[in-house]
Design a protein around this nucleic acid. Sequence first.
DNA 1: GACATCCATTCCAGCAGGTTATAGGTGCAG
DNA 2: CTGCACCTATAACCTGCTGGAATGGATGTC
Lengths: 298, 298
Amino acid sequence: MDVDTRLLRSFLAVAEEGSLTRAAERVFVSQPALTKQVRQLETLLGVRLFDRSRAGMALTGPGRELARLAPRVLTAWEDALRATHTAQRQAARVLRVGFLASAANEATQEIVAAFARRRPGWRTELRQAAWSNPSAGLATGDVDAALLRLPFPGQDALRVEPLFSEPRWIALPSTHRLAACDTIAFRDLWDEPFVAAPADTGSWRDHWLAADEREGHPVRIGAVTEQPDDWLNAIANGYGIALAPRSAARFYARPGVVYRPVTGVSPTQVGVAWAPADDHHPVVQDFVHCCLDTARPT
Amino acid sequence: MDVDTRLLRSFLAVAEEGSLTRAAERVFVSQPALTKQVRQLETLLGVRLFDRSRAGMALTGPGRELARLAPRVLTAWEDALRATHTAQRQAARVLRVGFLASAANEATQEIVAAFARRRPGWRTELRQAAWSNPSAGLATGDVDAALLRLPFPGQDALRVEPLFSEPRWIALPSTHRLAACDTIAFRDLWDEPFVAAPADTGSWRDHWLAADEREGHPVRIGAVTEQPDDWLNAIANGYGIALAPRSAARFYARPGVVYRPVTGVSPTQVGVAWAPADDHHPVVQDFVHCCLDTARPT
DNA sequence: GACATCCATTCCAGCAGGTTATAGGTGCAG
DNA sequence: CTGCACCTATAACCTGCTGGAATGGATGTC
């Protein structure tokens, strides 16, 4: 008895939403298509999975059982998928490196070049991650190594080597009252609204709000963004200001946004991270050494 | 990224057979269809899974990785399927009872009737299993309880209550030189070819060959059968003789086959079995009690 | 040189799956 | 009561995937 995982995903969406109409939006198909998919799954199993009513779709007992176990099928498939892709990269001599916007900046090129010298025949595949994914895909095995800003959530489960540190500056809309200053004291910004990363990034978000360096003063959030582009827009449009590494002034220059040095906040660190499973993976370790050599030349 | 489990099954078949042509026979599709399925999986993943050659299909590195993990996806799905069906039966008040051909015989009807009295509203679904499946589906969760001949392989992982015992007789082709005898000594049959159960049924097969009661005398196998019908045919056609419970003489009477009492072999036991997980399942336990009450009336 | 044995390709028929539009209940507000 | 909002189910239609049979092409064998 065979299923398409799509049927399971649709089923779970309906089960969670309790409504075909809403689930249809979530999985990006029309409502009649979902009706058919659910019915198809039901005929395949020979089991009624939902009680239909005008109010929506409610799981039956057997439906609950399936809703409990179907996610395992999906994760088993995702695992298989990931492992296959990892093996593929290995065979194709591709090292996947995740990075957050503005992580290593100019150092990145040097690191990649150094790695190319050390491992001729290997290619690096750089993959930029959204801020909602502060381990840049390392936690899920989507990349082999990552260049990150420290600290980040989930750091304890990974290996991390700090590479260098960089002062934090502040990004302001050019119309801001303080935009004219050469240098700004952080305490003068405590009451300003900030553009923040999504809440689920935890300590990483707090770091960029300098939550620990406000002497208990509360943070005002003016906007939440997931990507550099949105972030720049939010600042330019005056929704708030944001701390940023100094290098952002070069890499994320943009009309309407100015960067100024800030006193009273600690610098930020860039690190390279990898999965413990790769502690003895020669290629990954070579990459890590390239990072260290580039950042702290001996 | 969604897959149909059929693709995974096909992929595994090709991986195991090392040949599209052979795998195609095994999964009952044409060879071109398999060619397409494999290619489809490869394009879906963006990974070459096989090295093609005139000799056949050899897994690549990533292919091996997928072959390692794909079975987990399939078993996860089978688990989900089973759990859903189990819940379905529960909701529909159906108790599935597996039995081997000739297990409880006339007692079966009484047991079912007693259960119907004890649990009005519940239905029993009797499911006859092939001899290649001596736990009658209990080991795989396909049934809730089973009426079996003891001992059977895998018995230790299940709960078993013996119900009654019955002398073993011998089934002979009516043309057999001993068919005329009223009673036969088992030692006179040591050199006869026997019709046996498949080899993978282990101790169950041995029990019906009375392997332990031949004083070391080797067993001759005349035929291997999986089902009562084949078994009767094999005996009637003279491929061999076979031990059988006495009640088989009534339930499996057939021209060309005669049953005779045998001296020198121990009786056979019938038992009811259930999964340890159902030790406190009220309905399963009710069924077990019905079995015990019917077999050993107090 | 004929043959066997692989996998790949082509062509065709059938159906599964999607979409839009619409029907058919039911609760709620005016 | 009526119109509306919100469900799910159905109808009609179209596209493209999928599988089967036949065939091709490469290669090793007798």
